[in-house]
Computed example of a mutant assay.
Amino acid sequence: MTSIHRHDTDKELVTKLRQDDEAALSEIYERYWDRLFVVAANRLGDPQEAEECVQDVLYKLWRLRETLHIENDDLSGYLAVSIRNQVFNRRLKRHRERLRVAEYETTDAGHPSPELVLIAKELQKRIDRAINNLPTQCRIVFELSRQEGKTVKQVADQLAISENTVKYHLKKANRDIRESLDLSVWLAVIYYFFQK
């Protein structure tokens, strides 16, 4: 059966998707399924998991269609980032399950496994990027409080601003960082870095 949107551009498909057009989602599925699957399968090495990742990405695309923000309506770029994030989350989940089964055993006399080190590095890179993207004042407040361990009062005194302003910046920083990371990544961040 020929899709009614076969000749539409990606930008037109995004517009129609936002208008609850299920046929637009079907066309996106037809157009992008294979390449999303190849990316996921290459990184996961498991066709079934790769298929689930692609399904999750497309389901999320449909579920968030009304509030969807795609930079310059670049559907291809959006889907590429989405599938990479989905694969990362799947690998993180896989690793956490292994840790649970192994009761958090470590290799080489207490050294973390290479996979855990890789995940921790990737998480740290994402956190650093999110912090660097904060507005300047907000970033400074966050770094003084969270990275140098200063109290709200100490930060306020050092920067000559009110304690309420410090609290506002901390709230905004936490919200912006959370929003820039997928929920599962944020939970992993809390687990790996703040539960030590």
Rank of each mutant, 00 (worst) to 15 (best):
Q158G: 00
N132Y: 10
T106G: 01
N72M: 06
V166C: 06
L17T: 10
Y59N: 12
E27K: 07
Q158V: 00
Q195Y: 12
Y192T: 06
A80E: 11
I28P: 09
G110Y: 04
T107Y: 01
P47L: 10
K150L: 15
T9F: 04
A80Y: 11
L44D: 09
W186R: 13
G77E: 04
I190H: 07
L181F: 03
V101C: 02
P47H: 13
I119G: 05
L44T: 15
L17C: 06
S162Y: 00
L99S: 08
L118W: 03
S113D: 14
C138R: 05
W62D: 07
Q195P: 00
F194I: 06
M1K: 12
L75M: 04
L116E: 15
I28K: 09
F194M: 09
S180D: 12
I4T: 13
V189I: 07
R90M: 07
K172I: 09
D56S: 15
S113Y: 11
G149I: 01
R146E: 15
Q86G: 00
A188V: 01
A50M: 10
V81C: 03
G45L: 09
E27I: 07
V38Q: 12
S162M: 00
C138K: 08
S180A: 15
D10S: 14
Q19K: 15
K171C: 01
V87Q: 08
N72Y: 10
A188I: 02
H5V: 07
W186N: 01
L68S: 12
S145A: 15
A173C: 02
Q124A: 08
R98D: 13
R94V: 07
L25D: 06
W33G: 07
F142T: 00
G149F: 05
P135W: 03
Y59H: 11
K153L: 09
P135D: 02
L44S: 07
L92S: 04
T151R: 02
V54Q: 07
L144S: 00
N42P: 03
R96F: 14
N85W: 09
E22M: 11
K125C: 06
I140P: 01
T165Y: 02
I70F: 05
D56Q: 13
R94M: 10
Y78H: 15
T106I: 06
R129E: 15
L44N: 04
I131T: 05
L118K: 12
Y32L: 03
V54H: 09
A23I: 02
L13W: 09
Q137R: 11
H69W: 10
Q86N: 10
Q158T: 08
L170E: 00
E163Y: 01
L44H: 09
A102V: 08
T67G: 13
R31C: 09
A80G: 08
S162V: 00
N72E: 14
L13N: 11
R84W: 08
F194K: 05
S113H: 14
F142S: 02
Y32C: 04
E12P: 04
